[in-house]
Structure formats: structure tokens, C-alpha cells
């Protein structure tokens, strides 16, 4: 499964990994906002914006090739619209669309590649995100693999038996999704029972997070860098 790769990266250890999730989140947002609000992005400035990504990959000891390749998932979408821009005679916009979307994806990958999702969610919570939502995301991520595996098995089973017409196979697929739904539902009830059995009564206190001096320094440097990228005249 794809998401396991990022999961593995995020459980590594490096200067970036040990930074507080809130700090990394804020610095990433600062970078994204600076990039998004840059008017008329030139290639020279784009090169500047690539520097923090490179630094992040280096500091986080992330596999550069794999990360840059993953960020490329945005390219088909961006390239289509870039093409439209070129047709409309707006080459500058074409460059801006491709560069901005690609660098943004890479920046988010540096963030999630150095921060395990539970920590990221906890950070969001401490920054004001509703706990109910972060819990739902946490459960989603936890069971993504389990339920996908079910789906994979059912898909194989259907392939083994399915040789009928499109109409029949359509109905078989619908049946499979319906069974998957019912099973997911039952699974959720089982999880809830297991939670109750361990004394759950609506709210479990979450583990605290601590910001240290290095975090504060990182926040200041990170945000200053984002702003510098945005405003340095070239």
C-alpha cells in the first residue's frame, strides 16, 4: 500500500522528525502561503522556492528521488491546465501553475514524511482543530489498510468468478461494495465495543506535546525564510 511508504518515512529520526508537529505545520503553512501569494512567479524565484524543499529533504533524511517522484502526482492535472494557459497565450501562468502545485505537494510531503500522522493530528488539535474530526481522521487512517485488504480480497474473488456481461458484473460490483459497507459497519461496532470494554466514556485524555527552544528557533527561521522567499527582489 502506498501510504505505508510515507508512514515509514515519518517514523524515521532526524532533526526535522524531532520537531514539534505544530511548529512544522505552521512553517509549512507559511511556505505554502508565501508560494501561493507570489504574483508572476519567475523561474528564478521558483528556484529560490525549491531551496527549502531541498533543505527539508536533507534535514529530514528523506529519499529525494522517491519524494520528488511522489510529488509528481499533481503534474497531470497541472499540465492539462498549463496547456490551456499556453493556448490562451499566457505562458507565465502555465509556468506558475506547474511550479506552484508541484512545490506545494513536495512541501507537504516533507511535512508528512517527517511527522507521523497521529502527531500531526494532535498538533492540529492543539492549534484548534475539533477533536472529533481529528479522531475520525485517525480512525480512517488506522482502518484504511484493513478495509482495503477486504476490498482487495473481494475484488479478486469477483475476478475469479466474473465472466458474465457488463450488466451482470456491474451488479456483482454493487453487491461487493454493499457487503464491504455492511462489514465495515460491523467492524466499527466491534471497535466501539472494544473501546467500551477498556473504560471509554466519550473522551480519552490525549498525550501532551512539548515545544522546546529548538522548536521556537525553527519556527522563527522557517517563517522568516518563507517571507524572504516571497519578498526578496530578484
Amino acid at each position: 500500500m502506498h501510504h505505508v511508504v510515507i508512514e515509514r518515512w515519518s517514523r524515521g529520526s532526524s532533526v526535522l522528525h524531532s520537531r514539534d508537529a505544530r511548529i512544522k505545520l505552521l512553517v509549512t503553512l507559511g511556505y505554502l502561503i508565501a508560494l501561493a501569494t507570489t504574483p508572476g512567479l519567475t523561474l528564478a524565484r521558483a528556484a529560490l522556492y525549491a531551496v527549502p524543499i531541498a533543505a527539508g529533504i536533507q534535514l529530514g533524511r528523506l529519499p529525494a528521488g522517491a519524494l520528488l517522484a511522489r510529488a509528481a502526482v499533481v503534474l497531470p492535472f497541472s499540465a492539462t491546465f498549463a496547456l490551456f494557459s499556453v493556448i490562451a497565450g499566457d505562458t507565465a501562468r502555465a509556468v506558475s501553475l506547474v511550479v506552484k502545485s508541484y512545490l506545494s505537494a513536495a512541501a507537504v510531503l516533507v511535512l508528512v514524511g517527517t511527522t507521523p500522522l497521529p502527531k500531526l493530528l494532535r498538533g492540529m488539535e492543539l492549534l484548534g482543530a475539533p477533536r472529533m474530526l481529528t479522531l475520525v481522521v485517525q480512525f480512517l487512517f488506522r482502518y484504511l489498510f484493513v478495509i482495503s485488504e477486504h476490498a482487495q480480497h473481494m475484488r479478486l474473488a469477483a475476478l475469479c468468478r466474473g465472466s458474465g456481461g457488463a450488466r451482470l458484473r456491474f451488479r456483482a460490483a454493487a453487491g461487493a461494495v454493499a457487503v464491504l459497507f455492511a462489514r465495515s459497519f460491523g467492524r466499527a461496532e466491534g471497535i466501539h465495543r472494544a473501546m467500551l470494554a477498556r473504560g471509554f466514556s466519550g473522551e480519552t485524555p490525549a498525550l501532551p506535546m512539548v515545544i522546546d527552544a529548538v522548536d521556537v528557533l525553527f519556527l522563527i527561521v522557517g517563517l522568516a525564510a518563507a517571507l524572504a522567499l516571497r519578498v526578496i527582489p530578484l
Binding site: 485517525q138 488506522r142 472494544a194 470494554a197 498525550l207
Partner: peptide, 17 residues
């Protein structure tokens, strides 16, 4: 109570949690 399906019982993101 230890449930039959461990996946239902282990719902937190890490073992320690």
C-alpha cells in the same frame, strides 16, 4: 476482555498509545 479480532481491539495509532 480480549476480543477475537485484534484489529478491532487495537484502534490507536501506535502500540504504546
Amino acid at each position: 476482555l480480549v476480543f477475537q479480532d485484534s484489529d478491532e481491539q487495537l484502534f490507536m495509532p501506535t502500540v504504546l498509545e
